[in-house]
Design a protein around this nucleic acid. Structure first.
Lengths: 347, 347
DNA sequence: GTGAAAGCGCTAACAC
DNA sequence: GTGTTAGCGCTTTCAC
C-alpha cells in the first residue's frame, strides 16, 4: 500500500472537468453553482476522499486558524482537564476547536509549545504558566490582536487577562474554620517552589486567618511539597515537632493526597485536615475530607468568555477574573481532642 | 492598541535590505550566510517580533505538519491524561508536538475533531473511539500513509493498529482472586453501553473466571453504569437482591468511585470489592481498594512507538498491542464473612 | 453560473 | 554568499 499523494482541489476539478474555483465554491457555499455541478463535485470529493487543506486555506484567507491553543503543566491532573472541558464548551459554540498541549511545568517546553501555537496562528492562546517562565515574548502577538489569557496563575512580564481561583479568601475560610473548631496549632503544606503564585496567595490566606483568629504565626508550621511523596514526608515532619499541629491545611489536590495517605498510614485520625481543591473521593475517605473546593469548569468558561470578548473587539484594560471557591465541611476538620493539650497529642 | 498585521518574511527582508530567501536561509540554517547578514537578520526578527508562519511553510514543503493529533472522550479523566503524557514523552524525541482534543464521547464531535486534525495534516492520528463512531472515512488518509492508531478500544470499519489493556486477562485475574477468597456470588458492574468494547471484553474475563472457578453465571449479578451516580444506584440494586453478591467487581475507575461511595454510605464494609483501573487514593480508602491496575503511560508509549514505526516505513499488517494489567491486592478483596451464608448477609 | 489570473507566506531549484 | 523564479493548495478579484 504505497503512500499516495493526498488529493487536492485541482484533482477534484480535473475529475469533474471544471475549474478549481468551482469546486471551491461548492465546498464553501460561496457564490452560486448549478445543482448538476454541485452534485458531480460532491461525488468526486467523496470518490477521491478529498479533504481540504486547512493550512492552505488559512494562508490565503489571512485570518487566524479556527483553533484555541491551551498550554497546561500536567495532562494527568484532572484539575486542568476539567478547566479545558469548561473552555471547550464555550468556544465550540463559536466554531473554535480547543487544542491542548503540555509544558510539563517546564518553562522551556512551555515556550516551545506556545511558539508552535503562535506559528500555527491560533485564534486564542490560553496558558497555565509554568513556574519560572517569562512571557514577554507574547507582547508582540498580543499587541497584534491575539487574545492571551493566563489561567490559574498570572504570567510574568505581560499584562493580560487572567482567571484564577479565590486563593486567599478560600484558604482564609478553610483555616478560619479550623480555628473556629478550637485548633490553635495549624500546619500549612503549600505548593513548591515557595515562590509559586498559588503558594504565595494561599499562604497569605493562611496568615490572615491566623491573625484574625488571634493565633501566632509559627514559621515551623509552614512547609511545602511537590508530589504525593514529599507531601507525606512533610506531614511526618510537622507531626514530629516538639509542639506539633493538631490540624493541617493541604495547599492543593496532590499535596492533599499525600497528606491523607500519610495520616492513614500513621493511624493519625486525631489530626484535623482541610484541603484546597476537591478530590473525587473526598466524601468517602475516613474521615471524609473537608475541602475548599475550586470550580475548574467555571475557570475554563470564564477564560473562554474573556478571550471571546477580546476577539469581538473588547479593548478594555486587562482584567483578572477571580472564580470563587467554596468551603465544603465534612468530617476531617473536627475539633482537637478534648482533654489533651497540643503538647500531649504526639505521645 | 490597533490589531497590527503580523510581520512576514518579506517584512524582515525589507527591514534588513536582503531577499526573503536569505532570511529564510538564516532562520532555517539552510545554505550558507555571512555572519554579518545573519546578525542583522536576527536583529530584525527580534525587533519586528517575527514568527514564521508554519502553515505557509508546511504548504510549501508539502510534508505533514509536525504534530500528533489525539482525540479522547473525556479531558477530565486522568486515565486519558496519563495516556497522553506517555505519548508525549515518546513523540517529543522526534520533534513532534502532541495536540489533544475532546470528543466528549460523541461520535459526531469525534468526527469533526478528527477532520480538523486531518485538515491540518497531522503526522499521526491517535483516537480513543467514541461509542457508536464509524471510522471508514479514515481509510483514505490512512492509505495515503497517515499512521492511525486506536487507543483503549478498536475502531469500527478500519483495520489499523490498536493499543489496549489486557482487559479479559485482567478481569479474569481479579475475579479469580475473589473466587479464591471464597466468594461464590460476585457482582459485575461494567461500562455502559453494554456493547462498548471494554465492557464486553471485561465481561468476558468475568465469565471465564467464573467458569474456571466452577461458579454459575447469574445474569442478575451483571449490570452496568455510566458515571458515579448510576454506579452507586447499581450497587444498591445488586445488594438488594434476594440472594445478593458478597463481592463486587467494578468495571472502570469511575464506576469504582461510585461503588466505593455507595458501600461507604451504606456502611457495607462486609462487601468485598475489586476495581478495574487504579485510583490515586486506592490504598488510603477503608478498606484499601484491591485493583486491576492498568498502565496508561505504557499504553501511550506503545501507541506512539507503533505510530513512529509506521512513519518510518513499517508497512506490516495492522497489529493490536496489548498492555498487561497487574492485580494489586489490598484489603477490599477480603473473604466473605464466616458463618453467614450469602442469604443472611443482607439482614 | 463559471473560469483565468494573481497572490497569501513560504521554500525548492536554479541561477550568479 | 545571495537573489530570482516558480509554485505549494487554496481563495480573491474580476472577467465573461
Amino acid at each position: 500500500m504505497a503512500a499516495t499523494r493526498r488529493p487536492t482541489l485541482a484533482d477534484v476539478a480535473r475529475e469533474v472537468g471544471v475549474s478549481a474555483k468551482t469546486v471551491s465554491r461548492v465546498l464553501n457555499e460561496d457564490g452560486p453553482s448549478s445543482p448538476q455541478t454541485r452534485e458531480r463535485v460532491l461525488a468526486a470529493v467523496a470518490k477521491l476522499g478529498f479533504q481540504p487543506n486547512l493550512m492552505a486555506r488559512n494562508i490565503r484567507v489571512g485570518g487566524p486558524d479556527t483553533t484555541v491553543g491551551l498550554v497546561v503543566p500536567d495532562l494527568g491532573n484532572p484539575f486542568f482537564g476539567t478547566v479545558a472541558g469548561g473552555m471547550e464548551d464555550v468556544v465550540r459554540g463559536r466554531g473554535l476547536t480547543l487544542l491542548m498541549g503540555s509544558s510539563a511545568e517546564d518553562p522551556e517546553r512551555e515556550r516551545v509549545l506556545t511558539e508552535t501555537f503562535l506559528a500555527r496562528r491560533v485564534s486564542i492562546l490560553m496558558v497555565v504558566p509554568a513556574f519560572g517562565a517569562d512571557h514577554r515574548y507574547l507582547k508582540v502577538p498580543r499587541a497584534a490582536g491575539l487574545p492571551v489569557v493566563f489561567i490559574d496563575r498570572p504570567g510574568v512580564g505581560l499584562s493580560t487577562d487572567c482567571v484564577v481561583s479565590s486563593n486567599r479568601a478560600g484558604v482564609h475560610d478553610g483555616v478560619s474554620h479550623l480555628a473556629a473548631q478550637g485548633h490553635r496549632r495549624i500546619g500549612f503544606i503549600g505548593d513548591l517552589p515557595a515562590k509559586l503564585y498559588t503558594r504565595r496567595e494561599r499562604l497569605a490566606g493562611y496568615t490572615s486567618a491566623l491573625e484574625e483568629a488571634g493565633l501566632p504565626y509559627d514559621r515551623a508550621l509552614v512547609t511545602g511539597a511537590h508530589g504525593q511523596e514529599t507531601a507525606a514526608a512533610a506531614t511526618t515532619k510537622l507531626l514530629a515537632l516538639a509542639d506539633p499541629p493538631t490540624a493541617l491545611f493541604a495547599g492543593n489536590n496532590i499535596v492533599a493526597m499525600g497528606v491523607v495517605a500519610q495520616l492513614t498510614r500513621a493511624g493519625r485520625k486525631d489530626v484535623a485536615l482541610v484541603a484546597f481543591d476537591d478530590l473525587p473521593l473526598a466524601e468517602v475517605l475516613e474521615p471524609a475530607l473537608t475541602v475548599v473546593a475550586q470550580d475548574p469548569a467555571a475557570i475554563g468558561e470564564a477564560a473562554a468568555r474573556t478571550a471571546l470578548a477580546r476577539l469581538d473587539g473588547d479593548r478594555s484594560r486587562a482584567r483578572t477574573v477571580t472564580v470563587p471557591t467554596r468551603l465544603v465541611v465534612r468530617a476531617s476538620s473536627r475539633p482537637p481532642r478534648r482533654g489533651r493539650t497540643p503538647a500531649e497529642a504526639g505521645s
